[in-house]
Amino acid sequence: MQRVLQPEPIRAALAAKGWDQKQLAQTIGVSAQAVTNWMKGEDFPRPATLLKLATALSLSFDELVHLPQRDEPIIAFRKKTGTKTTDEHVLRAKAMGALLKPLVPFLPPRKALRTQIPSASTEYELLQNAAASVRAKLGIGAESVLTYERLIAEFDANDAVLIPVMWGKKDRHENALHILLPGDQVTFIYLNLDTHLEDFKFWMAHELAHVYTPDLAGKDAGEDFADAFAGSLLFPRELARHAYAEASRAPTAAAEMQALQQFAHQHMISLFTVYTQVSRHATAAGLRPLRVADKSIHAVRNSGRGALVSQALFEPMPPDPSTYIAAAHNVFQSAFFPALRRMLHERGTGVGYVQQLLDASIADAQALHTELIR
Rank of each mutant, 00 (worst) to 15 (best):
L191G: 03
R342A: 13
V90S: 11
A264Y: 08
T252R: 05
D199P: 06
T276A: 10
A365C: 13
A367L: 14
L64G: 02
F44V: 04
V4A: 06
A226E: 05
L271A: 00
A153W: 13
R249K: 10
T195D: 13
H265W: 09
R341W: 13
W19I: 04
N302E: 01
L208Y: 03
G97N: 04
G82C: 07
A54V: 11
T85Y: 06
G350V: 10
S133H: 05
A363I: 09
G82Q: 05
A230N: 10
I28Y: 02
M317G: 11
T276V: 13
L287E: 12
R92P: 02
K80E: 05
L358G: 07
E72N: 11
A226M: 08
K219W: 07
V309P: 01
A130L: 08
G18K: 10
A157I: 03
Q128K: 05
Q258F: 14
N37P: 00
P316N: 05
A245I: 11
W203F: 10
Y148A: 06
D227A: 15
A312F: 14
D71A: 09
S296G: 00
A221P: 04
P318D: 11
L138Q: 04
S303V: 01
L344N: 14
T187S: 14
T115N: 04
M343F: 15
P338D: 11
T283P: 00
R70W: 08
E8K: 08
P109S: 01
H173V: 12
A95G: 13
K201C: 01
S322F: 06
K79Y: 04
L14M: 15
Q2R: 13
A56K: 10
F106S: 02
L5E: 00
F200Q: 02
L67G: 02
A226D: 04
S121D: 07
L51F: 14
Q366E: 11
P108E: 15
Y244A: 15
D320P: 06
D215Q: 11
S279N: 15
A367H: 15
F332L: 12
K52H: 07
H242E: 12
D20S: 00
A247D: 01
G222R: 02
R110W: 01
H298A: 04
A360V: 08
A365G: 11
V104A: 04
P109K: 02
L181S: 00
R305F: 06
L100Q: 01
K80S: 08
A328V: 04
A247H: 02
A240P: 01
A365D: 15
V30R: 00
H196R: 07
T213Q: 07
A48Y: 10
Q258S: 13
V211C: 02
L126Y: 14
L138T: 03
G350K: 11
A228Q: 05
H369A: 09
F77W: 11
G304P: 00
S361D: 09
T55Q: 15
R92W: 11
T187E: 09
P105W: 12
N302P: 01
H267C: 07
